[in-house]
Simulated scan of single mutants.
Amino acid sequence: MFRRVIAALALLLLAAALLVAGWPQLLGLQTQTGVAQLVSLRALAGGMAAVAVVVLLVIALASRSARRFCASAAVLLLVFVGLSAAVLASRGWGSEHFAAKGEGGVTVLSWNTLGDAPGADRIATLALDNDADIVVLPETSVELAQQIADRMGAEGRTMAVHNITFDQIAKARTTSLLISSSLGRYVPDSEAGSTRVIPSGLWRPADGDGPAIVAGHPVAPVPGEMPAWREGLEWLAARCQEPDLIMAGDLNSTIDHWSHLAGEGELGDCHDGAKATGDAAVGTWPTRIPAEAGAPIDHVLAGSDWRFTGFRVVRDQDHAGSDHRPVIAQLERVS
């Protein structure tokens, strides 16, 4: 009798844990320590649960005394696998289809370079090959950003360099932004402030004609920085209150983390490019595991004045030195 009670309690605890891991938004736990990290890696967690199902079924077949418990646990895990697969399938594994870029279209490249690791030539080539108008580079020094701009300028694409740096302790505490001269001159909006620990910024067209641009990089949700991470997400959502805005960067968060901040879009009133194009299940971090199993934490978002005509996670730069994959999005104005 006692063993049955213990087994029943263990199954109840497993069911509760899987519910939190599979749909933490139901209980408002998506930004809590442990849960925030787990839900970032939905695909990996689902894959590990599938392996556990197989192991439990083998044990159930081999051991009569453990059969009922193992079979019940396997059923719970199988439900979790199904839920994870359904969520990921609804977000999309990557169409990578881009419509022809029209007049007035904007292409955005975002790549956390892990402290300049890929080098100027590689980043400039990627930007040029994809006709990038906006290049957001978290963890990238202003010196490397200028080198990238120089290489792009030599190919006939003039880019203005912008940067926000907290200090020189580490390159993680700097964020660079390149904006094509075709979009006009941009100036920083000092009143917008920044995320804490790692810098983010908002830039506006000097003549008021064009989208506001946010280069975002809130701190990662690691122990000791969880309050700053949550504040960072709130800062991003607060920027997403105007329709003519484009945001990109390493946002250290997935769509799951934004549910309490959603407005007309996934984050405030901004719509996520990967979600809009069916690419939101493709992982951008870390590069040491397949994109299908990674965390989709690098994003391009836009306000309601814009719609996405293409998005892809770049998968052929995994050995370039960064632990993040670049993302590229193409947008056009809503007519």
Rank of each mutant, 00 (worst) to 15 (best):
T125M: 03
A120R: 08
L56D: 02
T107M: 06
S141I: 08
P138F: 11
W111A: 06
E103A: 14
F69G: 09
G82S: 04
A127W: 05
D131H: 14
D133M: 08
S110K: 10
L137F: 07
V142N: 12
V51A: 14
A60P: 15
M48L: 15
L57W: 13
M48Q: 05
R122P: 00
D121R: 14
A73I: 06
G115A: 14
L114G: 01
L78A: 13
L137N: 10
D129F: 03
G47C: 01
E143K: 13
R151T: 03
R122H: 13
A132V: 11
A124Y: 08
L126C: 08
E103D: 12
Q146Y: 01
V55M: 14
A89D: 12
M48Y: 01
R64W: 09
R68T: 12
L56P: 04
H97V: 15
L144E: 14
V79G: 06
E103F: 05
T140F: 07
S95P: 00
A49R: 04
S72C: 13
V108P: 08
R68D: 05
L83I: 13
A85H: 06
Q146F: 00
A71L: 15
D133V: 12
L77G: 09
S141Y: 07
A50V: 07
V55F: 14
A45G: 13
A132I: 09
N130I: 05
G92P: 01
V75T: 14
L128V: 05
D150I: 05
R151D: 05
N130V: 04
A120M: 03
S65N: 11
P118Q: 13
V136L: 04
C70R: 00
E139Q: 10
R91S: 09
F80C: 03
